[in-house]
Write a protein that binds this DNA or RNA. Structure first.
Lengths: 202, 202
DNA sequence: TCCCAAATGGAAGTCCACTGTCAATATTTG
DNA sequence: CAAATATTGACAGTGGACTTCCATTTGGGA
């Protein structure tokens, strides 16, 4: 499940239409982006494909960049980790979470994750956006670690740990994408995350 | 020393002038960027400040982004690590390098590093560029680790380690910049890098 | 059913990065 | 010094993201 349903009143026709349009625009945008690249695709083309005017496009998305979402798996991960017992080491807690609902989530969104990641990894213009997301992930992770250890989230040690964790995540996802998603992402985590808990023995 | 002097024939007036101009443009660009931000500064303004026409600007720099240099400390680090004894664990090797010429280099470029880092950290448009640099750093680091351990640089384990290292570097530099460079960067490395070698004990 | 507010399309317009051309000027070379 | 060559400025584009405005359409409530 990708979208957070806000507890839902019957939702009139108008709203439903808007939602449809929003989805359609995104779908077409992604299609064009993967076909021709992000930069090479103009807003006009997206608008045409989605059968709206370009002014309407900007009513839905403040900028072209905003079409590219990022439904934050890492914050979701942070959330999942929160549910784990406090004594458990952080790496174990993460791996534990992956076996639960989070793993299912990953499987479900596999296609779209693959697509989006490939885009943000390859298209320079999208990277900036991605970096911002990554920072949020780092902060979220730092907060979880802080909660679990009674330290401050701003503690340099904690920030470093969070950064290292997210960096490994990213590396694994990148590897996974490079292999067209054929490998099992969860297995990659299980195999390589312990590197950080046992220490770099190089 | 920031620029690599190519072994130098007497270098005519024409060349000397070009070099001057190049420097002037960059200097003015940086000044304007820090004053008003990267996006908010137009090429015309830079050209005016540097007293050239905007067409000349583009003769010197293919794109506006290209004005922002990045003299790659991390690859330099990789180089320094190469000089260390092979048996030494990677983290120790890095810390060892910092005490040598690399440390001096950091001190020397302190101001400009501070300036540039602040820029690339705060200005979304510059991040993309930065990310590319970071990837190069990761690859360079991965290669060093590979050399020292007889593994492949493409080994996932190696890539993860390199990514984690660079991530911690970045975190430390960011912290350093946030504190206006008042702390001792080398000391930060010494204090926090061991986190990775002893393992995340959270 | 009728009216209002919201959503849309269309067109014209702004801003800025970047390109192409050409004539003027500066440097080099012989 | 003169001819050849390189560098520059001025100027007029182009393309694409984003804005503004207004007339039209559409959905929702009375």
């Amino acid at each position: 499940m990708t979208t957070h349903e806000t507890s839902t009143a019957p939702l009139g026709l108008r709203e439903r239409k808007k939602q449809k349009t929003r989805e359609r625009v995104r779908r077409e945008a992604y299609r064009l982006f993967t076909e021709h690249g992000y930069e090479a695709t103009t807003v006009d083309q997206i608008a045409d494909a989605a059968e709206i005017s370009s002014s309407t496009f900007f009513r839905y998305f403040p900028t072209k960049e905003d079409v590219v979402i990022q439904d934050e798996y890492d914050p979701a991960l942070a959330e999942a980790v929160r549910a784990r017992p406090t004594g458990e080491p952080i790496v174990d807690a993460i791996l534990g979470s992956l076996k639960g609902s989070l793993g299912a989530m990953l499987q479900q969104d596999r296609e779209s994750l693959l697509l989006r990641t490939r885009l943000t990894l390859n298209d320079p213009a999208l990277r900036a956006r991605n970096v911002a997301e990554q920072e949020r992930s780092e902060r979220a992770m730092a907060e979880v670690i802080a909660e679990r250890t009674g330290r401050e989230a701003t503690d340099l040690e904690v920030r470093c740990a969070a950064a290292a964790l997210i960096a490994v995540f990213t590396t694994l996802v990148r590897h996974w994408v490079e292999g067209d998603g054929k490998e099992d992402l969860a297995a990659l985590y299980e195999r390589h995350l312990p590197l950080l808990s046992r220490g770099l023995d190089f």
